[in-house]
Simulated scan of single mutants.
Amino acid sequence: MAVRSFMLLTLVLGLFATGSVFAAEPFSPGITQQRQGVDTYAFKIGDVRVTALSDGSVPQDLHKLLHGISDDEIDSRLAYAYQTNPVEVSINAFLLEIGDRLALVDTGSGELFGPGFGGNLIDSLHSAGFKADDVTDVLLTHVHSDHMGGLTREGQMVFRNATVHVGKPDMDFFLDRKNAERSGYDMHYFNQAIQIMTPYVDAGKIDAFDKSTEILPGVTAALHPGHTPGSAFFRLESKGQSVTFIGDIIHVAAVQLPDPSVTIAYDVDPDKAIAVRSKAFSTFARQSELVAVPHMPFPGVGHIRKAREGYDWVPINYGNRDSR
């Protein structure tokens, strides 16, 4: 397995899903990215208020990341989606208000990418009316830098009152440096995991699950290994409504929705990642399941729909009013 580069740590997603025809000429929008500041978007699933929180965004070079597809085809698919390489990628987290519990799905990149590249989660959390000490549970979709990096700051726990729920296979894999040599996966991932997760391990704050289980009222965790050994979905159900937080089974919507066989450099097991992605896309499209995705354009919530070629993305309908 090729060694991953430190500069390419954040997983990639295209900004919009596409149909089945791709433009031949690259599209150059000439748009300069601007800092938006804090950003939140809230909606209800039954009795549960869910708030998407922006950690920021980062640029990603898909030519260096994607496998199983040529650069020309990448550019063609991006052009059809009115994008160019490198693409600007959102880092999204999600807050769940469940009775007296406040659960955070993923924590963004924290300090790991440096100033200007993510690290805005706490500001967005404050904008939503909460502080880090209010969080009772952190649900990690997997142990990668842009999902668990926000757990600590300067070596100290950020969410001091929270239990961290995470797939046990990820803890077993990433907290043992010997697995870097065994797997060929870059040692940097193991060093970061140990750095970020150890304060919570030492404090007895880790709930590592190894099977499908209800970890909070109405929230079920299920393992879907491939991208990482302990990658997990979290499905929230309330009053007949549901949303599934799917982690990084998809990284580049404009490319992988039409062709789920395209993998990314960050997949620990690319073949399993393809299988998980293909099955999940089919299931979500058939069941019309609402999904929340870490790297779709903010807020990263919508539906995966069957298309003539593969699948496409339908973002959640925007609303901005008091709803009784």
Results as ranks from 00 to 15, higher is better:
298 F>C: 03
287 Q>A: 05
315 P>C: 09
284 F>Y: 15
316 I>R: 02
309 E>T: 11
277 R>H: 02
287 Q>D: 12
302 G>Q: 02
306 K>P: 15
315 P>E: 07
307 A>E: 12
269 D>I: 11
281 F>M: 08
269 D>A: 13
300 G>C: 04
293 V>F: 09
293 V>N: 01
311 Y>R: 05
272 K>M: 08
279 K>G: 09
311 Y>D: 11
292 A>C: 08
281 F>V: 02
290 L>F: 03
295 H>D: 10
271 D>E: 14
310 G>N: 09
270 P>M: 06
279 K>I: 00
305 R>L: 08
302 G>Y: 00
283 T>D: 03
290 L>P: 15
299 P>N: 07
277 R>I: 00
282 S>T: 13
274 I>D: 12
268 V>T: 09
271 D>Y: 09
313 W>H: 04
293 V>M: 02
311 Y>L: 08
300 G>E: 04
281 F>H: 12
268 V>C: 09
311 Y>M: 07
314 V>T: 14
303 H>C: 09
317 N>E: 14
276 V>W: 09
294 P>G: 12
272 K>V: 03
276 V>Q: 09
271 D>F: 06
288 S>W: 05
281 F>L: 11
285 A>D: 11
295 H>S: 05
317 N>W: 10
294 P>T: 05
272 K>C: 09
315 P>S: 07
310 G>D: 07
283 T>N: 06
314 V>W: 10
296 M>N: 09
282 S>D: 12
316 I>N: 05
308 R>K: 15
317 N>P: 13
288 S>L: 05
269 D>R: 10
283 T>F: 06
277 R>E: 00
304 I>V: 15
285 A>M: 05
